[in-house]
Design a protein around this nucleic acid. Structure first.
Length: 202
DNA sequence: CTGGGGATCGAG
DNA sequence: TCGATCCCCAGG
């Protein structure tokens, strides 16, 4: 295992802030899933998207949709929101802001760090850049699924750690991927690490 | 109950 | 460009 700084789990207050700021600040942080006593799967977050609840037609909680699925979005920041899409993939989000706002950040890509051999086995690809370069891919690689929905992210088995600081000039802001809603497709709410080979798209 | 649609991925 | 293949959820 690589020499690493001491693990410092992000506190819940990290998530209870403006969603676009959280999305930006998650770039460079480390997502960790401890799947059992022996195995830890982790990666550095290199791409995120913010979803702004009642202000954002692309958000699952828009305009004020409280259903069984979306209920966790209205919990206070710091919980996971994992949903199943296209009958095939899972996507992993972190709930943000104060309770009842329905906002979250989608984690779209990671640079794999720990557990790479197991990720390669799970993903059925060898190339490191293809292991976690998309929201569905990283969930498959890190074994994030239904069981990981609604978990508090400041404790095992699933958490996010601090990482080396990322300068503002190294974070690129663009429009989000795959947004159909006309009014929302131009929102500048996607963030990625400049030059990373592990993001989903340029 | 029904059926249209979805914050994706990878094969062809 | 398209199919996979499920679940959600609005509408009847």
């Amino acid at each position: 295992m690589l020499a690493r700084r001491k693990r410092k789990i992000l506190p819940l207050n990290f998530y209870r802030r403006a969603t676009d700021v959280v999305a930006r600040d998650l770039i460079g942080k480390i997502l960790v899933h401890q799947i059992d006593d022996q195995n830890v799967l982790s990666g550095r977050i290199v791409e995120t998207e913010a979803y702004l609840g009642a202000r954002d037609p692309a958000c699952h909680s828009y305009p004020e949709r409280r259903t069984e699925r979306t209920e966790v979005l209205f919990w206070p920041g710091g919980y996971s929101y994992v949903y199943f899409i296209y009958g095939v993939h899972f996507c992993f989000n972190v709930v943000t802001e104060k309770k009842d706002l329905g906002e979250a950040v989608l984690v779209r890509a990671l640079e794999p760090l720990e557990g790479i051999p197991l990720m390669q086995k799970r993903r059925k690809v060898q190339k490191i850049e293809q292991l976690c370069s998309g929201p569905g891919k990283l969930c498959q690689a890190l074994r994030i699924g239904r069981q990981e929905n609604r978990l508090k992210l400041n404790q095992p088995p699933l958490w996010i750690e601090d990482g080396p600081p990322v300068k503002d000039q190294d974070v690129v802001t663009t429009t989000r991927i795959g947004i159909a809603q006309k009014e929302a497709k131009d929102f500048p709410l996607r963030f990625y690490l400049r030059g990373s080979k592990h993001i989903s798209k340029l």
